[in-house]
């Protein structure tokens, strides 16, 4: 079985071999990019709309480059310039856009579940570029590809995810993906940033970072999402850095060849020490960004192929 879905809304509905199919295709694209080979323009003549209801520079740019490398016409629709500000509902916006017959719709929205809702109302393929605190599937896929390239495998690894788990869609998608592929997962952070019920997810929960990092193969840091803080989850940035900021001392508890990841943008000195982020022997943060484009190319390529197949009448000679 390969990747057969109509949309990429989250990691939750994906089977392990679908995840592998996506990552394999992305790996191919990553290799071609490094060798300077141009990919086949599989999205030629297709229209991709990026619809970001929440500010994003990195993810939006990554989707745009991915679409353009495969030959798609890419349009970016910012919320500020759209009628959403005029009170139009999300569904009406979606249906209006759908009537313009795009082939791929890339959506980010601040409400959990909003992208699922939108996908019910449109006929094109929808890619979730992050919905509220729910899922961010392409981030988890690019993290997985980065891990596999660094570690040579994507199972039976000890992976510590550290920081603001409660508000993080990146954490949720990663927990789902890495769990499906049978890794040992640890969540590290203060109890105020740990979602209730986390212990029922088949993970180990630590509030001591050194304990949580012990013998880990992968240390995945999360951004401390200051813009989501209602206030009062942590006493101060400096106390947070003292207890949960990744520095050389805490990283020493992990395996000697442990890699350090971060979805960006980083708050240096809050969740990660600048020298570790820039340590080319440990940090794979730049590679994550590189894999991001490859993963988004793979996802859009496969979704467009699924769409073509679904629209081809069976048993009819053409």
């Amino acid at each position: 079985m390969t990747f057969r879905a109509r949309h990429l809304l989250g990691i939750e509905p994906l089977a392990p071999d679908e995840i592998t199919a996506l990552i394999d295709r992305a790996d191919t694209y990553a290799g071609m990019a490094r060798r300077g080979e141009a990919p086949a323009p599989v999205l030629q003549g297709q229209t991709q709309i990026n619809m970001f209801f929440e500010n994003s520079t990195r993810t939006q740019a990554s989707f745009e480059i991915a679409g353009k490398r495969l030959g798609a016409q890419v349009m970016n629709m910012g919320v500020a310039s759209s009628s959403v500000k005029k009170g139009e509902t999300l569904i009406d916006t979606a249906m209006t856009l759908n009537a313009m017959r795009p082939d791929l719709l890339v959506v980010r929205h601040p409400s959990s579940g909003a992208v699922d809702l939108l996908a019910e109302k449109v006929t094109c393929a929808v890619l979730n570029a992050g919905d509220g605190r729910h899922e961010h599937p392409t981030q988890a896929l690019l993290d997985a590809l980065t891990i596999r390239r660094a570690k040579g495998r994507l199972h039976r690894l000890t992976i510590a995810i550290c920081g603001d788990i409660a508000h993080s869609r990146v954490a949720r998608s990663n927990i789902l993906l890495l769990g499906k592929l049978e890794n040992r997962l640890r969540l590290v952070g203060p109890p105020t940033l740990m979602p209730p019920g986390a212990k029922d997810w088949g993970v180990e929960v630590y509030d001591d970072m050194t304990e949580g990092l012990r013998d880990a193969d992968v240390v995945m840091m999360l951004r401390l999402q200051k813009e989501r803080m209602d206030g009062g989850f942590i006493p101060s940035e400096r106390e947070y850095f003292h207890r949960y900021g990744l520095d050389a001392g805490k990283l020493a508890a992990a395996k000697d060849d442990a890699i350090v990841m971060h979805p960006g943008p980083m708050n240096r000195g809050v969740e990660i020490d600048g020298t570790i982020a820039d340590d080319i022997n440990r940090s794979v943060i730049q590679e994550q960004v590189e894999m991001g484009v490859a993963v988004r190319m793979a996802a859009m390529d496969l979704l467009a192929a699924n769409m073509r197949e679904a629209n081809t009448p069976r048993g009819v000679l053409t």
Binding site: E12, G113, R133, H134, R169, R172, G197, W201
Partner: peptide
């Protein structure tokens, strides 16, 4: 309501 379901769905929750 706080718990596994709300956490998985990423919804703001209350104990």
């Amino acid at each position: 309501t706080s718990g596994k379901f709300a956490s998985l769905k990423g919804l703001p929750h209350v104990s």
